[in-house]
């Protein structure tokens, strides 16, 4: 038997493409939240101890550790608390670059959501800018996060920094 060993020039890589299907449960709160989007309503959940409102709704407040047992509507408009302008692509994403990903504190909610800001130049987006949801037309809403196409400026005066700096 030879003891010289296998070829000196090694195989450099073993390739593998992973295909892993998943099927996610939304959970009852999220089901109701998504269904309400069909009616142009954004639901939040209210903490049974502090009264603070979470959007999208969650079953318990991470702050108070108490259940959030009531679902209530919040406004489909609010304030951009902070944002970034994305200039680089991610595999599998179709949003045209550049785009603005913003934290938006909806009126009536105590935490911010992530939202896409359109209908203005990215350079014109400001912390404090008032924005509103742009909904898909009636009949086209499916009860999914895509029912809100994006947010756009309302033209209202900006909110002062101090009014939202504590809830980025």
């Amino acid at each position: 038997m030879s003891t010289s060993g296998p070829p000196k020039e090694p195989v450099k890589y073993v390739e593998k493409q992973l295909h892993l299907p998943y099927c996610y449960v939304a959970g009852d709160y999220k089901v109701r939240y998504l269904a309400a989007l069909k009616d142009k309503t954004i639901l939040g959940s209210k903490c049974s101890r502090t009264g603070k409102v979470f959007v999208p709704p969650i079953v318990a407040s991470p702050e108070s550790f108490a259940p959030c047992d009531e679902l209530i509507p919040v406004a489909d408009r609010g304030v951009v608390t902070t944002f970034c302008i994305v200039n680089i692509p991610v595999i599998g994403r179709s949003i045209e670059l550049p785009y603005v990903a913003a934290s938006v504190a909806l009126d009536g909610a105590d935490i911010s959501i992530y939202a896409l800001i359109q209908e203005c130049a990215p350079a014109d987006v400001r912390m404090g800018m008032r924005v509103e949801a742009v909904w898909k037309p009636d009949g086209e809403r499916q009860g999914s996060h895509e029912d809100i196409i994006h947010f756009r400026p309302t033209g209202e005066p900006d909110a002062p920094l101090a009014s939202f700096m504590h809830r980025l």
């Binding site: 060993g5 296998p6 070829p7 090694p10 195989v11």
Partner: peptide
């Protein structure tokens, strides 16, 4: 090591330990 073992399979149809 792994790369050379695999090269042995690919190029020479030989199995090395």
């Amino acid at each position: 090591m792994i790369g050379r073992f695999l090269a042995g399979l690919k190029e020479d149809k030989r199995i090395w330990g």
